[in-house]
């Protein structure tokens, strides 16, 4: 579903955010992208969304080389990728319903269909009673769920989440993780960037570790998770059959050999 070949990213200011990164994520996989603050996690997600272009190397999403994607095609790629930003990026002037509806308005769905789908999703995320609230009046956990709802409502093939538990207390973090794993169980490929090593330890899912822009470790999914995944709270399945990318995934499960990295290399300090 996602393939990177020798991807480099150097920002104009000269900082080397990604260095020779090669990796594959299969369709339907759940992957943690980890590494200390500044390792390049957010940069990698930004490259997938073509918010930035790679300096070098190739990136394939659903078999399509986004390195050669025309600017006019970018919106259509983005419709297949839901993203949950670290700072949520909700539109402050639009209420919860409208924020989530954006992703469907863009597709030009009929109003009734939009209302049906948004309300259904909000209900599943226990946000329906907040539908008319503005983002500024929501708690951090609520904002996070609205951001997730917006990323999911158009049933994308891929869900990217940047530090989705970063600002939340452990209980809320567990709830969000439960949500993400449930979405994944319904077929969506999920990539979660986090520097929270404890979170990763708890779930035992496949983990890609970045270190100073290099892929330092690729730890496969542990046979048994350390803890049971929290039960799903999405009342309706997030169906992905209609998603255009899911049908054309070109994937090979075996990643390149891992390079060991010591756990103390991760700092858990504040991330940008």
């Amino acid at each position: 579903m996602i393939q990177l070949y020798h991807v480099h990213k150097r920002y104009p200011n000269g900082s080397e955010a990604l260095v020779d990164v090669t990796l594959r994520v299969r369709e339907g996989e759940f992957v943690f992208l980890t590494g200390p603050s500044g390792a390049g996690k957010s940069t990698l997600l930004r490259l997938l969304l073509v918010m930035e272009r790679a300096t070098d190397g190739q990136i394939l999403i659903g078999g399509r080389n986004i390195h050669v994607l025309r600017d006019s095609s970018i919106p259509f790629l983005r419709r297949n990728i839901g993203i949950v930003f670290q700072d949520f990026r909700l539109v402050p002037r639009r209420n919860v319903f409208d924020n989530v509806a954006i992703a469907l308005e863009i597709l030009g769905l009929p109003r009734r269909e939009i209302e049906r789908r948004v309300n259904q999703l909000l209900e599943g995320l226990r946000l329906l009673h907040r539908a008319t609230a503005l983002p500024g009046d929501l708690s951090g956990g609520e904002q996070q769920r609205v951001a997730i709802a917006r990323a999911l409502v158009n049933e994308p093939a891929i869900l990217l989440a940047d530090e989705p538990t970063g600002n939340l207390d452990p209980e809320l973090a567990a709830e969000i993780m439960g949500l993400l794993t449930d979405i994944n169980r319904h077929g969506t490929t999920v990539v979660v960037a986090t520097h929270d090593i404890h979170l990763i330890e708890r779930y035992g899912l496949r983990t890609l570790a970045l270190h100073r822009g290099r892929l330092a470790d690729d730890r496969p999914r542990q046979p048994r998770p350390v803890v049971d995944l929290p039960s799903a709270r999405v009342s309706q399945p997030v169906a992905l059959a209609s998603s255009p990318l899911s049908s054309q995934a070109v994937v090979d499960p075996s990643p390149d050999g891992p390079v060991a990295v010591a756990a103390d290399d991760f700092d858990e300090g504040g991330d940008a």
């Binding site: 918010m51 993203i83 539109v91 863009i106």
Partner: peptide
């Protein structure tokens, strides 16, 4: 910016 990121043309 947000509209662009969620796929608006």
């Amino acid at each position: 910016d947000i509209l662009g990121l969620v796929g608006a043309t």
